[in-house]
Structure formats: structure tokens, C-alpha cells
Write a protein that binds this DNA or RNA. Sequence first.
DNA 1: CATGAATGAGTCTTCATTCAT
DNA 2: AATGAATGAAGACTCATTCAT
Lengths: 191, 191, 191, 191
Amino acid sequence: MTTGSVSPRRADTRRNHERILATAAKSLAGSGEVSFNAIAKQAEVGVGTVYRHFPTPEALILAVYEREVRQLVDIVPILLEKHSPEQAFRKWTTDHLAHYMMTKRGLADALRAVTSSRGELPAGAYEAMVGAVFTLLKANVDAGTVRSDLKPETVLRGLGGLLYLDPNGEWRRDVADLLDLLWRGMGTCRS
Amino acid sequence: MTTGSVSPRRADTRRNHERILATAAKSLAGSGEVSFNAIAKQAEVGVGTVYRHFPTPEALILAVYEREVRQLVDIVPILLEKHSPEQAFRKWTTDHLAHYMMTKRGLADALRAVTSSRGELPAGAYEAMVGAVFTLLKANVDAGTVRSDLKPETVLRGLGGLLYLDPNGEWRRDVADLLDLLWRGMGTCRS
Amino acid sequence: MTTGSVSPRRADTRRNHERILATAAKSLAGSGEVSFNAIAKQAEVGVGTVYRHFPTPEALILAVYEREVRQLVDIVPILLEKHSPEQAFRKWTTDHLAHYMMTKRGLADALRAVTSSRGELPAGAYEAMVGAVFTLLKANVDAGTVRSDLKPETVLRGLGGLLYLDPNGEWRRDVADLLDLLWRGMGTCRS
Amino acid sequence: MTTGSVSPRRADTRRNHERILATAAKSLAGSGEVSFNAIAKQAEVGVGTVYRHFPTPEALILAVYEREVRQLVDIVPILLEKHSPEQAFRKWTTDHLAHYMMTKRGLADALRAVTSSRGELPAGAYEAMVGAVFTLLKANVDAGTVRSDLKPETVLRGLGGLLYLDPNGEWRRDVADLLDLLWRGMGTCRS
DNA sequence: CATGAATGAGTCTTCATTCAT
DNA sequence: AATGAATGAAGACTCATTCAT
């Protein structure tokens, strides 16, 4: 048994983990409902297996959330490499955040339900989001396109409305409008 | 039965309607859960009665939503009478909208669940909200405090992040920060 | 609607109550298991109905227990009318208590499980049993067949072993043996 | 592999056996619930190991039961050495049997559930208990404190009520009362 | 119209048991 | 032999909905 090889059992286990997570993500993106039984069926595993991997609904939802957020956050540096700071900000917001928010409404609801019940939010993930915005802001501040006294939290909050985009409408225009508004407010203009 | 005369029966009926609505509102403000049976019990009516007034969960939730929105909207003219346009805008946002959003999260969730499942949103209520913002904007445009090319929808979207305020934190400061950002973007400052 | 007549609905309700109780009694007599689902199926009612009548397993078990005990207790005066005090005591023990205990082992277990979990025993029923024994004792004391310083609780405890009778063996003889032993101890024989 | 030699493997195996038994005993003393998985976890072995040692729940429960009974039985000769026959009987009953029964209710329940379901009782263990009582009785008969025509089974049955002692009440007094009653019945008094 | 009992589908959760490693 | 992941049957419980009164 070489180091690289992993026992089939372990392989199954890992695959199950991933499968469950993926299935749950799909469910949450849609209705915001998570039925452990339904997920088990869709993921083609036993209910017990789901419970083994995620003892509580919270554990599952949080795991899904962190997975999604990670993807969002990891894209920032890539965007900054390829685009000007301003373009990076606009692209991230429009092409990634907006899209994410439109499709993950159920997740947001589930997340809120879960975290509010226990008062604990997935701090790490929130921090990560703030960090992503911070990075984008920093690049823009350095480029002189944005004033330096902005809190990333505030900007993120300003983007919160993206959750209510209508996927079947002219959402790109709506995002652009919101970005124009915010960008103006973020600018170095007098006052 | 002429318009003016109302049978005692009708009076009861109306009271029931109001009772159910109030009870449901309370429930939705909290957990976002609505059990028809539970609501019936709290409102001290039979389940059947709830069904008679609101044939489906959607009907109930929408009714609650419209009731809440109406209160929010009705306040605008009053604020505009007592305060400067800018102050009215800030007051409405901070003292009413933010408070409303913080306490009504459950309603927002329920509303989304309901509307997304059937694709129908309570257009009237949304229009009313947009109308409220429009009124506030108009007053400010007339006063020269805000530029004239703003769509109320955009501003409303910018305020969407208020949904994620932390009632146990320094939410007033957070609101102020967001308002500062938006207000700057709304101003007449050159491009 | 005359006083005597009861609406069909009510009739159903009552019948359900009785049915559930009877079914549960049968179940408990056997395995000591009470599956709400199983009981519902056997009683030919919905699960929800069982829950409506008995919100918790405890409620159900206690109800069954009290029903059984009542039968046991109610027989005492009848026996005392027809038989001598001694015969009444022997008959009650052998023909009723022993039979009851042999068939209701499951109930005893369930009862213990239920009461120990909450520390509350169905005091009323226990008192009733003690009362039954007291009545029997009293009659015997008056008849001079038994000494007067016996606590009914002690005698009842002495009869506790009847729970372990073997229904497929010579249990009558075993009961007789135990009764002989106890009766001797209960007698007015010198110290 | 000769009888004397024991491989380290075997040592582990034995230790596991004992561990599982001890853990199960503890569990059974408490709630009467035995989850193989839970026992495995507490005993710090895999579930499979538990199954290897005890193929069925019955096997486990019976093993525990026999272990407990053995302890009870083994004490009798020791008591008889140190005390008078009467004292030995009283001490055994009060200090060992009563205590055992109070703390092992769960075991009794489990045992009954198990044996009644399959109709097989742990004959050996029962015989052992009867034997213990027989020994105590014999000593007393020889000492003239007890009549000679008593069946140990009957006396044991008379002690059966000890199962219902209240550990949080004046159980010692209750035991004493029961013993007084029985002892009187066991005596050589006339008739 | 109002009432609330009945129904049963569906979710949550636990556990005995199997079996690949 | 030991381990523990996977499985799924089974029981507890909730709640939307119907319908007799």
C-alpha cells in the first residue's frame, strides 16, 4: 500500500462527503429546504450516512455555505491580476456575487434560520467575505479610484440588495444601476 | 344588505380576520414558521376559520406582508411634513425601515419561500415601497439635495442590506455608515 | 337535539378514545412496546388521532394503567360481599391480581420506564391499589384472621413476586405457596 | 496452543470482553437501554467487536445478568461464615439483594423483554439464585429458626417485591417490614 | 360561518446489523 | 480479530388539509 493510494473504503467515504455536500447545495439553492431524507435519496446514500457526516442541519448548511463562500473569495485575486482594480470590483460584483446571490437565495434563508436560532454565525465565512471586499477596496484605494476611509462591511451591506435581483428580468441593468450609485458614493469626490 | 348595515355576524368575521392577521404577523416576525394550527390556536379560532379567510399559506403571508408595508408607506408623508427632505429620508430609513427589517426577517424568508415557489410576488406591495422611496426622493430632488436621475428601485436595492443588521450590535452606526455611502452616491456631486 | 342524543362526531371521538386505549392495553400486555404508529394502525385511526388523545407516551401508558387498576380495585367490595374475608383475600390475589400481573408484565415495565424518567408515579393508582389491600386487610382484622398492625404497603410488596409467575407452568400452586407463606406471617400467631 | 499459553492477542480479547460487559452492566443499571453502538463507543471498541463477543442482544444481556447474579450468589457463604443464619439471611436480603434490585431495574426489564420474546430464560442464573436462597434457608433450618418445609422458590418470590423499592425513600424500613412479615411466615410457629 | 377532530403524508432521528478494510 | 462507515428499517412527531357537526 503506497502512500499515494487510498483504501477504497476511504475513497467511498470521501466521495460520499462530497456527494452529500453537492446535493445539499443544489437543494439549498432552490427551495431552501433541506430534508435529510430527500438529500440522502438524491445523493444515493443512506440517511444514516448523511447523519454521520453532518450530525445536525446546521452542520450541513454551514458546510455548504462555507464551500460557496470559498469559491467566491478565491476568485478575487485572480480578477485583480487580470483587470484594473475598478474593473475587478465591477466584475466580481456583477459576474460572481450577483450570480451567486440570485441562485443561492435558499441558502441565505436557511443560513439565517440556522444562525439566528443559535445566535452563532459562521464567523469565518463572514470574515472571508469581508476580506474579499477589503482586498478589492484596497486595490482601488491604491489606484486612487476609491477613498480610503471605507469600511468593507459597509460596502458589503450596500451590495446586500443583490439578493433580491430578479433572475428573469434585466438584472444586469439593475446591478449596474446599483453599482453606479455605490461607486459614486465610494469615490474621492469632494465632501 | 346595504353597504352601510353590518350584521353582527360580519363584525365577528372582521374581528377574526384582524385577529388572525395580527397573530400571523407576530409569528412571522419571530421564527418565520407559520403553522396554521398554531396560528388558529393563538388567535383563538378554529383552523377552519383560518382557511376560510386565507385559503392558502400564500394568501396569509401576502396579507401580512401588505399590512406591514402599508404601515411603512403611510409614514412617509407624515415624516415629510415634520422634517426636511433629507432628515425625512434618514429618519425613515433608520427609524422605520431598519427596525422593520430587523424584526421581520422571518416574514422576508417566508415571503421569498412563498413567492419563489409560485413565481408570483405581491406586486402591489412592492410598488408601494418603491412609491414611498419615490416620494422621499422627489422631495429631496426638489430641495436640490439629491440628483434627479435616480431610480427609486435602485435606492431601495441599496437599502436591501439592512436586512442583515445585527439587532444586538451597533446597528445604528451600521445604518448610518450605509446611509453615508448611499447619500454621497445620491448627491449632486459632479459625475 | 335532545339531551340524550350525542352528535355522531362526538360518538366517533369517544369510540376512538376507547379503541386506542384497548389497543394500547393489548400491546402493553404483550411486549411492553408501544409504538404510536402501530397502535394507530391496529386501532384503525390516524397517528394524529392517537396524539390528540394522548399527547405523550406517558399519558397513554398511565391511562392504560389506571384503567387496569380500576378494574382490579373495583372487584374487592364484590368479593367481600360474596366471600369470607379470608376467602376474599385469597380469591382476589389468586384469581385477579395474579392473572393481571401475569398478563401485564409489559405494562409494568413500560410504567416503570415512564415513571422513573420523570420521577412521578401515578400516585392515584398506587394509592388505589394500597386502598384495595387495606380494605381486604381491614375485613380480615375485623374477623380476627389477621393481626392489626400490618401495613397494606408491606403486604402488597410481598405480593410483588407474582409478577414473575410463569403462565405456562403451575402458577396456581406457586401462588398458593406464596399465599401460605404470607398468610402465616400475617396471622395473629404469637410474636 | 496449549491451555497455559495465552497470546497477547488473547489478552486483548479478554480485556475487551470484560470491558464490554462492564460497560453494558452500567448501561443496563441505568436506563435499561442498550444501544450496541453506544456501548461500543463507551467501551472504546468498534461495534464489530461487540458483535464478535455477543452475537445478539440477548447474549449480551444474559451475560450481564449472569455476572451480576454470580456476585450475589458468591456472597452467601461469606455471610454465613461471619454471621448467624438469621443475620446472614437478613443481611443478604437487605444489604445485597435489595440494593442490587434497586439499582438494576433496567436489567430486570431488559431481561424480561429478552427472555419473553424468545421464551428462553437464563435457567442457570435462576437456579443459582434459588440455590443461594436454599443455602440460607438450610442454615436456618439447621439452626431451628425456620421451618423445614419451605421451598426456596417461594421465599424468593416473596422477596420479589423488593424490585419496587424507592431508592429515594425509606427503603430500609420497607425492607425490614417485608422481612418481618416473611420471617414470621417462615418461622416454626404452630400450624 | 365557525369549529376542531380526524387523517396521513412526510420529516427527523436512532440503531441493529453488515461488511470492506 | 478489530474497526467503524454505510445502510435502511422503524418509530416519534408535526402539520396541512378535509369535513362532519
